[in-house]
Design a protein around this nucleic acid. Structure first.
Lengths: 121, 121
DNA sequence: TACAACATTCTACATTTGTAGAATCAAATA
DNA sequence: TATTTGATTCTACAAATGTAGAATGTTGTA
């Protein structure tokens, strides 16, 4: 299952906050903030989909993510790759390197990173 | 503007075919093929959004993409990066290298590629 | 304790998306 | 030319999405 755009946005805040009460969520939203009920609806839908849960402290809820950003995201990217690059990650990687505008420094860093990944294999 | 999932799928076929009559599109869809009218609806919506157009040959239309896959895709990835990696492409790159399972060979290739990109800078 | 501030649930509704039937029009063919 | 085949438009509709008011319950506070 997947989150919708707005749900994703909210999810991102939860990942950032790690755990949050309604108040914290409202705080972190930029102006113009959505109505509390809107957020509540989203939270409920996300809970139904199994992406978040909450702990009860007395009567107030502290919401938290059930999926790790990494995991959610890699599934995401994989779908993207499958969709656009005939399931070839390397094709995607090459595209990515050419098309995103990484600075020389960033490219050097990436190269070093890849090197260390290669050594692990 | 953005394409929806099904529109994206169709768009991919158009990119692959470069140009196509309704028949070609129907042919390339795997079983179970959608109804012709379904495809027609999608084509119209995509044309409205400005992603495709068509040439008339007598009375029949040959559809073709107005946006390049590269362009569409890089906008896409950039949105993704903005969304999940606080707008840092390098953060994304590092994530990507670690999380997608490229083989040693693919990593080597990628490294070479990056090297050539570095030289261009 | 009475009121104000908050949070949650219910209900609602406009838009967008996925899907396709019916009607129509054009083209190929018997 | 009459019929079959194919494409396009119109219309429709269910499900998903974005958004939030009204009602209700809870809690902190004057």
């Amino acid at each position: 299952m997947k989150l919708t755009k707005t749900e994703e946005e909210l999810m991102n805040y939860l990942w950032k906050l790690e755990k949050a009460f309604m108040k914290d969520i409202l705080d972190i939203y930029p102006e113009p903030k959505p109505a509390t009920t809107t957020i509540a609806t989203l939270l409920k839908r996300m809970a139904d989909k199994g992406f978040i849960a909450y702990k009860l402290y007395g009567k107030s809820r502290e919401y938290y993510p059930l999926v790790k950003k990494k995991d959610y995201f890699s599934k995401h990217v994989n779908a993207l790759i499958k969709n656009f690059f005939n399931d070839s990650a390397s094709q995607f990687a090459s595209f990515f390197t050419k098309e995103t505008n990484l600075s020389k420094k960033e490219l050097e860093e990436l190269k070093a990173l890849i090197d260390s990944e290669i050594k692990k294999k």
